[in-house]
Amino acid sequence: MNQTWTLTKRELRAYFDGPAAYVVLCVFLAITGWFFGNALFLQNVASLHSVFSIIPFIFLFFMPALTMSSFAEERRAGTLELLLTLPIRDWQVILGKLLSVALLLLLAIALTFVYALTLAILGDLDLGGTVGGYLGLFLLGTTYGAIGIWASSLTRNQIVAFILGFAIIFVLFLLDKITDFVPGQLGVIMQYLGADYHFQNLMRGVIDTRDVLYYVSLTGFAFLLTTYTLAKRPE
């Protein structure tokens, strides 16, 4: 387990040694800040709702971008062979990478606590909705991250990995928004499979295990697929 953590630290350092982490964090804060300020000052709405609503859109692009290199670059550079001949299991390698993305995600989310704090000081913070919203964002982001990592394990080209990851995530994002076009029973299934639907639930402040379970199982599924892809030892 120590080795998994060592790998996580290396991945995090790679993010912060280059411009990737800074660009992502700055743009993330700029967009969310604009939506927060816009709601607060222009519309006189003291709520995190507009911030929480825009973040799933940001994740749609950012999570594939943050994970596109995770295995694709290792395959291109040949370092995957070094990594997978170390005395650790394949799943530890994947877990190490997923953890690093989750931690970076946690940092990005934590930076928006400033908005919640501002609202708390001004006196009108919906605690349930805020906690649920933050939990939802973390689960949603981690799920997207796991899918991005799987997409990255399928190719040695980072751009292909990005597009692939984005496409899968985009379909999941859309599922619950197009239920009007399909017959009843199918619509219910599609709604349940939609990634954004469960986030909307959590954001309302109702922390339902079914919503949490949805994200956890989807993350687990993407993780399993990555294990399967790596076991085939792609060239």
């Binding site: 060592t6 290396r10 790679a14 062979e81 070094l82 001949t85 005395p87």
Partner: peptide, 30 residues
């Protein structure tokens, strides 16, 4: 794997790391 040291063909290395950090990383992983 623990008994073996391996240098793959064309020497892949983490090019974004400083030599010392890289060796320390491999040591920790090993």
């Amino acid at each position: 794997r623990q008994q073996i040291g391996y240098l793959p063909e064309s020497t892949p290395l983490y090019s974004d790391m400083v030599t010392y950090d890289y060796l320390e990383f491999v040591a920790a992983m090993r």
